[in-house]
Design a binder for these strands. Structure first.
Lengths: 346, 346
DNA sequence: TTGTATGCGTTATCAA
DNA sequence: TTGATAACGCATACAA
């Protein structure tokens, strides 16, 4: 077992406070004699002393931990986000604890509960996002919190996300510019901030171009690849099928790719594909995917900055940051000449 | 702020012990009158009571937390592994704290330090792996520990990993069977368990086939994609270049892909590629990669099982589990007719 | 320059 | 059926 300040105190003959001061107070520079400093440090080392952060946190009412909650840690977008967050937090001397909610709101609730029980100093949450009563509660308990990626317009909370509407506009407008009009949208989890805003952008782009919205071309219900796979299979049975598919997330696009391959549908010759999110591998896919990239590093940076500010000034005005997405054009979209469209019907 | 047992005790008029028993002892069933139970629970709710795990952990000398350390959380292999570990640990009622060491042994050291200071009940470590004095220390301090993916043969510690030698044998033998003899190997981080064993398998396969080992065909120094990119560029300048490349990890393969694309080298027509690791996207790459798959779910399951056993019986004999990898043949390897080989020289 | 005493929130032991 | 109290390990106000 690990030794304590008391052990060291007894061994050296000094008091616990003196030992504590040499070991954890070197900043404030109490006037401690060189000699006692050395003996204490030496025996601390001999005894394998290791501070107990539980005790320390209890005493200080501060843990130096930030809780981070994401819907799916294995999703490339979120794992990259976590990595960036970790780097930013470390800079400020904070540790962090991640929870993966598996897109399940009840797990999200218990994750928050768990984190608060650990007395984290702050929270960064990419919420599942279908409901926010539990989030509201955190805010009311005035524990520092910033939402990331998934926000709630209805809530006055610090948040940073990409401009999803604009991202969808970029994607769909690109498709329209290339001559597509029958453009399908495979959604992520409905009710989710990310999903609803992306859907909104999709609809708006069509509307702006004077293209009627066909509800048959909108499907899907979560951000996983299986959803992309199933929905794409379904879309391919339509008559005529869409000439292009826009997917709400990277994993969905992977599923779409699989369905197309299975049906020997060539992308982009037979059908075009654009996706939200742009993980490292999109450019190596077959074909390289045209995709909407989110500035992940920047998101993490802003989120942590907002959190620090909130921890410092609890009553500052809340800020909602909206970052610019980017359209990365690659090889998954075909140019359509107007008549081609009907040739695809069967 | 959150209320405490004391607050509830004062408000209800009962003692702290009674309140504590009502709120956290429902198992042991003290004989507490229905009436006090109800009032206590009600006011606990009213006051927004939330247990303080710091205090509890301090008192109990047990935190219910498991520390997990990985070299790169954004690497698809590790993010999948973490997800699996999380699921397994939750089953046992444990929370977990992840650290990302960025393949940096000094960060690994401080991660371990940090985790021990938090008094985690156990540790699962995918070590950077070049040195193990710090790991040895944990073992000596007799805190439950299991190594995963990256192990130390020299250390008597519970560990689970895939049979890397066998994986490499699968990969290289496949290449040899297809007629390749000039097979390059792009390494991950040298000194690492995963790397050294994979290298060993590579060499053994060549040796068994009577193919001389050409040190010029072995390069690379970490598991990131930039390494794959740079090394591949280098390999392409060789005269003659290799007819096949075997990469030690998925990210390295991605880099190799990029270099080939940049040089207009077609895979597999101009050069074949096989990689260790098989994340979800390999089959959608261009071309779909022939790859060595690790049984991630099983690894997580075994690791957690070993950890639980160790926590229960600290002095049981240590176990080293070696799991079977799988060769997934896809489209990144060309069959070579013997003469073709020389035609590639320039 | 160092020591004493108190409290952070819990649980466990013992007593009532 | 409930309460008083000590202890977990640490940091700090106050004393010396």
């Amino acid at each position: 077992m690990s030794s304590t300040l008391k052990d060291i105190a007894e061994k050296t003959g000094f008091s616990i406070s003196t030992v504590s001061r040499v070991l954890h107070d070197n900043s404030k520079k109490y006037k401690i004699s060189e000699k006692t400093r050395v003996t204490v440090q030496q025996t601390a080392k001999d005894l394998g002393y290791r501070i107990n952060t539980l005790a320390r946190g209890l005493r200080l009412q501060k843990t130096n931990e930030i809780g981070v909650i994401v819907p799916d840690i294995a999703n490339p977008f979120f794992s990259a986000l976590i990595k960036s967050l970790a780097g930013e937090l470390r800079k400020g001397g904070y540790n962090f604890i991640v929870y993966d909610t598996d897109e399940d709101i009840s797990i999200e609730r218990s994750a928050i509960k768990s984190l608060l029980e650990k007395r984290v100093d702050g929270l960064i949450i990419a919420s599942v996002g279908q409901d926010f009563s539990h989030i509201q509660k955190i805010r009311d308990a005035s524990i520092p919190l910033v939402m990331i990626d998934r926000c709630f317009d209805a809530l006055d909370i610090d948040s940073v996300s990409v401009d999803n509407v604009k991202g969808s506009l970029f994607a769909v407008n690109h498709l329209i510019k290339e001559g597509h009009t029958r453009i399908a949208f495979i959604q992520g989890l409905p009710g989710t901030y990310a999903n609803e805003t992306r859907l909104q952008g999709y609809k708006q782009a069509l509307h702006d171009a004077g293209i009627a919205i066909d509800e048959h071309l909108i499907g899907g219900d979560d951000f996983r690849s299986m959803n992309g796979y199933l929905e794409t299979k379904h879309l391919l049975t339509l008559s005529p099928p869409p000439t292009a598919i826009f997917t709400a997330g990277d994993l969905i696009a992977l599923g779409a790719l699989e369905a197309c391959r299975e049906h020997c549908i060539n992308i982009p010759a037979d059908i075009s594909l654009v996706t939200f999110d742009d993980p490292v591998f999109t450019s190596y896919l077959s074909p390289a995917l045209t995709a909407i990239e989110q500035p992940i590093g920047k998101m993490a940076e802003m989120a942590v900055a907002l959190l620090y500010r909130r921890m410092k000034n609890p009553d500052d005005e809340r800020t909602k940051v909206l970052l610019e997405p980017t359209l990365n054009v690659r090889n998954s979209v075909a140019r359509l000449v107007p008549q081609t469209n009907t040739m695809h019907s069967n």
